[in-house]
Design a protein around this nucleic acid. Structure first.
Lengths: 108, 108
DNA sequence: CGTGTAAGGAATTCTGACACG
DNA sequence: CGTGTAAGGAATTCTGACACG
């Protein structure tokens, strides 16, 4: 319907800028990647590149960490949320197919 | 109304990435700045930082240049557009004030 | 576990300048 | 005018490792 990979998702920000934006050290940012909390892309020569969405995730992670939540638990929660989204995604897809065949019933 | 400086306007992209995104050389990008076609911010240590909007402007500039338009003319046109926008901005502001006093009373 | 730091190298960016046209 | 390039320096980023706790 929309998206051509929006500004929010494009991976164009270097780790130094992400560090400024989030207040996290580069060490922390790289560690959260190691723990699979964040997934930067790489430039041709291997430099990490982040999106605004990544920056927001990192700020959420920082808040969780301050509350003493461990990276492992943060990852668990992320995966749970993701699976839930996927289920809803499939549900929506199905709803779309049904509508396509049996018509636009606005009622429910 | 909205805007907290949206993703599109935030200056976070380094010149190398802008170069990849636009296909322009760093030399060209710096030169267009010298000619006042583009206005990056600077990081604490002096590195240029661009927004997605800047990237789009650069692509427009690249197209104009391919058509043989000189940087001076591109700048002229930019300034003309900007002044027009400012006039419209003032007009809208005025319209808002008039409405606030005499128009559409949403009840009070 | 989460983060700091020193280490060495490679890539990035900056400025001012010369070149060509 | 618009762009390439070599130059030298400073800042950035990368990885793997040791440290502490």
């Amino acid at each position: 319907m929309h998206h051509e990979t929006s500004y929010k998702e494009r991976k164009v920000i270097t780790i130094g800028v992400v560090s400024e934006l989030t207040g996290l050290s580069e060490r922390q940012i790289r560690y959260y990647e190691e723990r699979k909390l964040i997934f930067p892309e790489r430039s041709p020569k291997g430099n990490r590149k982040y999106s605004f969405l990544d920056v927001e995730h990192l700020m959420d992670i920082a808040n969780k960490r301050e509350e003493g939540v461990q990276t492992f638990e943060i990852r668990q929660e992320m995966l749970r949320r993701k699976r839930k989204q996927e289920r809803n995604g499939r549900k929506e897809l199905l709803r779309g197919e049904i509508n396509a065949r049996f018509g636009i019933q606005q009622s429910e």
